[in-house]
């Protein structure tokens, strides 16, 4: 490559990567009204920020759950077909077949409130009143043996007193410190002793679409 071309190429690369530096605000858009922010700002955090006023008991939550949730999740959060299981599974996370539920796996109760409030019931999202969300959340605590009184009432004021068992079950991404990331030696020759033997075939399971068997799913 000629020197000129190299310089030209470098110039092109630097141009394509540099962004215009803006001198200041462009005065585009308009200020949101408080009603607009209120309408969309529904998220809830583990420290309780975002929780609306409201309250609901386990007993009422059971009724709401039976009407609006049980067709997918089952009366007791056991899950219908491949819809998510919400209760049970505590103590199974290190098993061969872990059962990940709100009681066994989710770290924060705020996550339950936020998710039910923004995305449930599936197909009719954001239709629940705040009281109903408190009641459903209370019932889920009950299903997971975290509260045991049907008259228990969950509200904005006592919400922070209730924690999920797996709150400390999570840790930060350590991948860059793993032996895999530290290996910088790509072997090229005689990397593994002996001739490679096939130890497993996809065909044995036969679950590729157009195949016949359907194992249980896991994505949802």
């Amino acid at each position: 490559m000629s020197r000129f071309l190299k310089i030209a190429l470098l110039a092109t690369i630097s141009i394509s990567c540099s962004l215009p530096v803006l001198a200041g605000p462009l005065n585009i858009g308009r200020e949101a009204t408080s009603a607009e922010v209120l309408a969309w700002n529904i998220d809830v955090r583990p420290d309780g920020q975002g929780l609306p006023e409201g309250r609901g008991t386990v007993a009422w939550g059971e009724e709401v759950f039976a009407e609006k949730c049980a067709s997918c999740h089952g009366d007791f959060g056991e899950g219908v077909d491949r819809w998510p299981v919400l209760a049970g599974g505590q103590g199974t996370l290190a098993d061969e077949d872990p059962v990940k539920t709100i009681g066994s796996y989710w770290p924060y109760l705020s996550t339950v409130f936020d998710y039910v409030n923004r995305a449930m019931p599936f197909g009719e999202a954001q239709s629940l009143e705040a009281d109903e969300v408190y009641a459903i959340t209370a019932y889920i605590l009950y299903l997971n043996d975290i509260v045991d009184d049907e008259e228990f009432e969950l509200s904005k004021s006592n919400f922070m007193q209730h924690r999920l068992p797996n709150e400390n079950g999570f840790f930060a991404d350590p991948r860059l410190e793993s032996p895999i990331a530290e290996n910088k030696n790509a072997c090229m020759k005689d990397c593994v002793p002996g001739v490679a033997k096939i130890v497993m075939r996809a065909r044995t399971l036969d679950v590729t679409p157009d195949g016949e068997d359907n194992p249980s799913g896991g994505l949802n």
Binding site: P46, Y105, D114
Partner: peptide, 11 residues
Amino acid sequence: QPWHHREETAK
């Protein structure tokens, strides 16, 4: 601080 919503905890 992070929100720890469903798609970064349960999933």
